[in-house]
Design a protein around this nucleic acid. Sequence first.
DNA 1: GGAAGATGACAAG
DNA 2: TTGTCCTCTTCCC
Length: 285
Amino acid sequence: MPEGHTLHRLATEIEATFGRRRVRVESPQGRFAESAALLDGALLRGAEAVGKHLLVEFSGRRWVHVHLGLIGGFVVTRGPAPPPVGVVRLRLRHKTAYADLRGPTTCQLIGPGERESLLARLGPDPLSADADPEQAWRRITRSSAPIAVLLMQQPVLAGVGNVYRAELLFRHGLEPHTPGRLLGHDRWQAMWGDLVALMREGVRTGQIDTVHTEHTPEAMARAPRVDDHGGEVYVYRRSGQPCHVCETPIRTEVLAGRNLFWCPTCQRPDPRSDRTTDCADAADH
DNA sequence: GGAAGATGACAAG
DNA sequence: TTGTCCTCTTCCC
């Protein structure tokens, strides 16, 4: 579930529900019990998302640092808290709402120093108003790693995951194996602007929709996507299905341990590249 | 009832 | 590059 937009929504929801109130803090599962006891009854000041990280601030310059990883979930529900169902690492609650955290890779009580070092190791977040795309550009243009790998490295760019990276590369017609150093600056600026718009839309709707108006199911008279992640996409998890634009079957492969999807016809190396558009080049990495 | 898989990240080699 | 962790859901027997 969680790419950056999910965490930003979550931060907003947690702040709206629990912000500036004293909350009960529990760890039904037990793995966060010691820290929960320290925070129980404290004032929850607010919540912020940075990339895929969530920071819930409590009085006394204390933060609960949460990272959902691949499978984690943090669900806010109205109403008094019932007995926990399943494995609940952390529960926040007051009289009229509760939030259950399950399966995070990180749930840790931290102080100002640890918070600072976390922020320092993250690249610009397209959802943050003061993010600097040039900071990401400097790393991309220095690297010979495939652009598809760089987009998912959180020190390069914070908040982009497997869906946004695949869809962004499609929307910009960029072959995923193109080395970062061959990416043109203009192309990068366009990609950044697009990411900001796409991810803001993701925060608004809670899902990842990336198709242009002319490629929606209605416009194309095709069946809408039925999937657990909702939105309409060009390539993500569409392996073997026809490209919405050119009908070439979408390709997939595992790159750096993650499933990559792309259209071999619509996506080409950056024009600044001195390579030909021969697909054999793409295998070089 | 069990295996596989999933929008992530890290350590070890 | 591989293995490991986190939890739940889906699919197949």
